[in-house]
Design a protein around this nucleic acid. Structure first.
Lengths: 216, 216
DNA sequence: AATAAAGTTTAGGCAAACCTAAAAAATATA
DNA sequence: TATATTTTTTAGGTTTGCCTAAACTTTATT
């Protein structure tokens, strides 16, 4: 499989997850920073190879083998991200571009050994689950804190806003990956929330609750 | 720089080292498993970019900037080889193909951090020196044990024959990377050598001494 | 329902990196 | 030295993945 084919499969997988429906050439091409005509071309090729199902004017959908291929690439991407963050001290924003390159290296042994070296991690530094070697992923509900109800509890797995001011704020409040966040109360007038984190209660603004992801 | 350009530069560097002279398109194309016409084409491109000096029918030579580029790629290759061997338990023969892919990943930070993570190694698992970030290499005399004289001492940095039977033999005799080998005696009739390794004397056949590399 | 707008596909090109076959130059041999 | 052989280059072709522009569908608007 070529580098380009891999990128298309991965993109189709993500967009399919996000929208639920068939992925249009327009959306796909924008996502990949290419022109719609290029997407059409590649989609046709992937269809001939039996990796996607494509009906002209109806968008694409991954089929079984396409999804497994996509998940294998995502596995590689997330293992490399974990490596960069844990072993090479890369910060969140530096990780992506490099992992994007590393995910295309072809060697089964490399990935097996990397997985072992990292201690068989289940989640990457963004909190996303790492598929196993067969392409199985832990089903995970990823929500924003703002989508929780009073009484709910979630584990912090990432953020949406990665500006340094927001990350600094989280640091000050002792909110980090793995923090258990319990929703105490919801204020209707400003949509802020009172939450409990490690026996400490604090109030998070709507902006804050919308930018913190939790696994429930 | 494209992947192909990088591979050509690296090959020209090696062949130039090996033969001392300008590298012919014939030799270069064979080394890269391509046709001479393809080599000519690429050489012309690299010449236009100012990385090599090329005169039709006279072969190619790297110039200053081409050599620095080549050494940067070799640096990446050797750091990755070290990583694969030291951290991921790859054996000598499995290393090369993967490092060949990893060396083309583009990220200065990645290489800096990898170097740090590995403890700034000076030699790769084959005993070859790792260039620094500016493309400077430690000049190193790499010799076969058979080229040494009685009284000489060398440090084992690699082997030529990588068959498992030879590697097993070395293992049994406790000869490994880093072993200090002192030449005690040379037998003229069969060209075998008596050597001392860690206070133990043993006799190595001509075949053996020709297949062990040392740094002196 | 007719038309306008938006999205998609087709057709024809381009650059990179490879190829084959033929022409040209360099080297070896009679 | 003349000819044969080998090496190198040139010319023209192929594939992959991208592009633009034009044609065609689908969807939205009046």
């Amino acid at each position: 499989m070529t580098l380009s084919e891999e990128n298309y499969l991965k993109s189709i997988y993500s967009l399919q997850r996000e929208h639920g429906k068939g992925v249009s050439t327009n959306v796909l091409s924008k996502y990949l920073d290419a022109k719609p005509a290029s997407a059409t071309e590649m989609i046709k090729k992937l269809d001939e190879k039996g990796l996607v199902r494509y009906q002209p004017y109806q968008g694409v959908l991954l089929n079984e083998s396409g999804e497994i291929s996509a998940l294998k690439i995502i596995r590689k991407h997330r293992l490399w991200e974990t490596f960069l963050a844990q072993k090479l001290d890369f910060s969140w924003d530096e990780i992506h571009d490099v992992a994007e390159q590393l995910e295309h290296i072809k060697s089964d042994k490399l990935i097996q050994q990397l997985d072992k070296f990292l201690g068989y991690p289940k989640y990457d530094p963004h909190g996303d689950p790492i598929p196993d070697e067969h392409g199985h992923v832990i089903k995970m509900e990823k929500k924003r804190v703002s989508q929780l109800q009073p009484g709910d509890t979630g584990t912090c797995i990432g953020v949406n806003d990665t500006s340094s001011s927001f990350l600094q704020f989280l640091d000050q409040q002792n909110i980090r990956l793995g923090s258990v966040i319990h929703i105490v109360n919801f204020q209707d007038f400003d949509k802020s929330m009172t939450v409990r984190i490690e026996d400490r209660e604090l109030i998070l603004s709507q902006i804050a609750t919308e930018n913190i992801y939790v696994r429930i």
